[in-house]
Amino acid sequence: MSVNEGKEKIALRNLRQIYYIRNQQTKRLEEFVALEDFSLSIEEGTFIAIVGPSGCGKSTLLDIVAGLTRSKGGSIEIDGEKVTGPSLNRGLIMQGYALFPWRNVRKNVEYGLEVKRVPKAERKAISQKYIDLVDLSGFEERYPNELSGGMRQRVAIARALAYDPQVLLMDEPFAAVDAQTRETMQDELLRIYAKTEKTIIFVTHSIEEAVLLADRVVVMTPRPGRIREVVDITLPRPRFNADVRVSADYGVLVQRIWELLHEPDVAPAPAGPGEDGVIDIADEILPSAVL
């Protein structure tokens, strides 16, 4: 842990988010509560993982923290300052990579630096540093369509790291790559995290991934998305897949979170409009002008 241990980086207070979804039967708009009373204090340099079933508002939460959507209630503060929109002090990494296909690896990594108006020579030095960090040296001039899924995700990570945001928001970043690549990527993220000491919020479906990576795992309940419990992961760092997976504590923690997710005393989610796809559509962040 860094010297800043204990200093609050992100304060999420009573976040609430509602979508309006058209009921298929009645054709009326219905309120769908994606996030309810979500409060969390995140210390600087902490790795937070968020797990929960589909539709528990995980991605919604990240969009709010990224400043891409405004919550219907509550507030977010980063370093004591209220979040009102997107900014380069947060980096978002998405499942679909979202690399600019017309930019080669280097130009993709330099995008945030261009927005920041960093001079060209300096940009090149910085992008090279992060391309090396994610192990893509030699691929600088390649275009995304010439790279594998794992490599594209590494470019996305380098792009988010390059403009040096203090907070990394990762939305199921490894969900689209194969199991082998996923493990490699996890180890790499652990290595990068140890090197850069960012504050990370990492959304995932995988309990194992959450336990492996995080300092604290936030377990959520669906509909409305609330915090069920925050589990501290006490496994020692540095961590690697090979060591962590065989340790006894790891198994206990995975089991503990599994039970939290499956505990029967949670009221079963009402079936209906809150299907995954619907939420994703409502989730779409676009300037109205583009659509």
């Binding site: 990224a66 980096g91 978002l92 690399l99 600019f100 945030g112 927005v115 928001l169 779409e284 676009l286």
Partner: peptide, 14 residues
Amino acid sequence: VDPQLVKAARSMGT
């Protein structure tokens, strides 16, 4: 235009 690209660009303060 892929909305994901717009989202990525927006998240970087574009």
